[in-house]
């Protein structure tokens, strides 16, 4: 159950593009045609699916506070978490290079469709972001980390596929000249993001509100005031009725 929940949550609610804006650079640059968008999207799913679980292992057995305890009790006091940025990015860069070499060797067909995007991906914020969010949210198990990597990749894939399809169509529309290209893409993405916000109501299980919707203190104060007012009005109404009855 928690797998299903995490799967849908990372695709729709915490969508990489619409909720946290990760991987926007390649999202904007490579979304002019559906076919290239599909290639890049598939590569992102693949690389996220490989690097997030790998970095989970690194985090669990090397970086976390006390993670070195498996080496012996004298290592239990070390906290190497300040090294996570450099280790995560090194893992990602080497994995991407490795995957490129392996794919080129064993599946030239796949390499031709996916290969040119692989170097681009090393510096895609969605990949590093996946690992950093995995660390920040303290995902508890290897299987869940794998799930998180793949499902957030699918979320990114859906987003770039959708914007590429829209951009192919929008060429036939009469967009105001200064908005053409980049400007209109930004605004469409914003509107799609608002659409995706409505998935926030889909949260299952625990009642934790999605990030960004936590009411501010000002809003809370207003709410409390309104509730008080209502209670007072109710009291007034009651006393009024009582008077009539008497």
């Amino acid at each position: 159950m928690e797998h299903v929940e995490l799967f849908f949550k990372s695709i729709f609610i915490d969508n990489m593009v619409f909720a946290v804006f990760l991987g926007m650079c390649s999202y904007l640059a490579v979304s002019k045609k559906v076919s290239t968008a599909v290639g890049l999207g598939a590569a992102v799913i693949f690389v996220l699916g490989v690097t997030v679980p790998l970095n989970w292992l690194l985090d669990q057995y090397l970086l976390q506070d006390g993670a070195l305890a498996w080496l012996g009790p004298e290592y239990a006091d070390y906290n190497l978490s300040f090294l996570s940025f450099i280790l995560f990015i090194a893992t990602i860069a080497t994995m991407v290079q490795l995957v490129e070499i392996v794919v080129e060797k064993f599946s030239p067909a796949l390499y031709n469709s996916l290969g040119i995007f692989l170097p681009l991906i090393a510096v895609n914020c969605a990949i590093l972001g996946g690992s950093l969010f995995m660390q920040a949210r303290e995902i508890p198990s290897f299987a869940l980390a794998l799930n998180y990597g793949i499902s957030s990749g699918i979320g990114w894939f859906l987003a770039i596929l959708a914007i590429a399809a829209i951009r192919e169509k929008i060429r036939y529309s009469n967009v105001p000249a200064p908005l053409r290209g980049l400007g209109i893409t930004f605004i469409i993405t914003g509107l799609m993001g608002i659409g995706f916000q409505s998935f926030g109501g889909m949260l299952t299980g625990d009642n934790e509100p999605p990030e960004g919707t936590v009411p501010t203190t000002a809003e809370k104060a207003i709410e409390e005031k309104e509730i008080k007012k209502e209670i007072e009005e109710d009291e007034k109404a009651v006393s009024y009725n009582d008077v009539i009855n008497e």
């Binding site: 200064p178 980049l182 400007g183 993405t189 914003g190 509107l191």
Partner: peptide
């Protein structure tokens, strides 16, 4: 304005204003 997608729209409008002021920056569609 607080929700994340609003940022995209604000940047979109900034791009719009900038490109209307400097026509040389307009992209060929």
């Amino acid at each position: 304005m607080i929700i994340p997608p609003a940022a995209l729209i604000v940047v979109g409008v900034i791009i719009w204003v900038q490109r209307s002021r400097n026509r040389a920056l307009i992209e060929e569609a």
